[in-house]
Design a protein around this nucleic acid. Structure first.
Lengths: 225, 225
DNA sequence: CAAGGAGATCAGACATACCTAAAGAAGTCT
DNA sequence: AGACTTCTTTAGGTATGTCTGATCTCCTTG
């Protein structure tokens, strides 16, 4: 009778795995290898953990056929994502953190703060809808506004677009994009989307042209104007 | 050659032990039992950990004769205390936390924040010298302003004093003291300090009398006027 | 100075979470 | 179908940090 309700708080590691499945799998399922790479952890460690997540009722997992989140697992993942994005917003707006350092600090803090802290912080920040990278912040009830943007890699040549999100974590990449002004809010004109290798060329508000590799173009989301 | 400089960051547990030794021992030494009680941990666990602290060069430890901090251990402990007190200040002043909940939240956060975060937070807060309980905040270089107050239990009857610190962690105790206005800054007149059992009677600014047990009186620090 | 009791240590276990290396499944290619 | 590669799992080992129960030390008291 006790263990039906007594859902003790999950560990930092478990939380990281849930977020990784959420990131990698979306609504589908994530393979051991994908998770292993995403988390920089040996494949064997992932297998062990997926078994535990299944036992805890946080993930559906069939050996050799990948894992996906249960409803409870998704809730926990979104709770962490909410914390992470609110914390990043605070770090940038009030502590003056550089854009490149937000992720690492938030990654540790998200596992240490309570729900009470999170909601007080949301109040303090004025309940922002998006974080500094343009990523939507899940609501306290687990609701997440559906994505209304498309990757720059799928934009049409000739269109004018506005950058809405930059879904990247690596400091070096963020620094490069920030230096070139490829940040949320910026207006761009799509010059070319080369089918061959996915390289995208855009012109910004000041007439400067930027050429972006396929991977980079896929992680920059834009809205058509 | 590498391990002379490669002092990798200490774990949350190790940090808690260092703080406990700092709290319990002061400049003397702390016994296994005292630490066991302070940390709510079995005595056997303390013995094992003290051995590790000694190996890590953080504590001096002689079996059966207690432990004290080395210079490095003291530095680490003060770093955590600095974080803790700055975080408590932020929680109260900017997130509107109740006085009673500060300690628990700060206790978890202090192990998750970086030095960079700590110094940015100190900037944000305007480099306060004391936290909401009146406890002095160690400087970034490990300096701690020496205590200039005395416990209420050692005050002289008839004297007028000002409350400077309330060194307590338990929410229930803090709630009681806050309700009765026994908080830093308050003026009191010492009516009686009973030698027999240490019970202290004081009268506050509004003419109300308060009677405090010995333990409580020892944790309220005051300055003579 | 010998005995007892309080306090401390040791030994053995458990839980989490990670790794490496060897062995086993799944799907592809000839 | 058999062979091969790639991905996954299993097995055994490490490190941290905890607990319990048995033993050992130290100091005090008779």
């Amino acid at each position: 009778m006790s263990d039906l309700l007594a859902h003790k708080p999950i560990s930092a590691s478990v939380g990281d795995y849930l977020k990784a499945i959420w990131n990698v799998a979306g609504s589908g399922s994530a393979s051991t290898n994908e998770l292993s790479e995403h988390l920089s952890v040996a494949p064997g460690s992932v297998t062990r953990m997926l078994g535990r997540l299944r036992e805890m009722g946080l993930a559906d997992y069939e050996p050799y056929h990948g894992a996906s989140l249960t409803e409870r697992g998704r809730r926990e993942a979104l709770r962490l994502v909410r914390r992470h994005r609110l914390i990043e917003t605070f770090l940038l707006e009030h502590l003056g953190y550089p854009l490149t350092d937000l992720h690492e600090e938030a990654e540790r803090l998200e596992h240490a703060v309570s729900d009470g802290f999170t909601e007080r912080l949301a109040d303090f920040l004025g309940h922002p809808g998006r974080d500094p990278h343009g990523d939507p912040i899940p609501a306290a009830d687990g609701t997440l506004t559906p994505e209304d943007s498309l990757p720059l890699s799928e934009a049409e040549a000739g269109r004018r677009v506005r950058v809405s999100r930059v879904s990247h974590e690596e400091p070096a990449t963020l620094a490069y994009l920030a230096e070139n002004g490829l940040i949320p809010g910026r207006l761009l004109k799509v010059e070319e989307v080369r089918a061959l290798d996915g390289v995208v060329t855009v012109e910004d508000e000041y007439g400067t042209c930027h050429t972006l590799g396929g991977a980079l173009a896929r992680s920059i989301l834009v809205r058509n104007l």
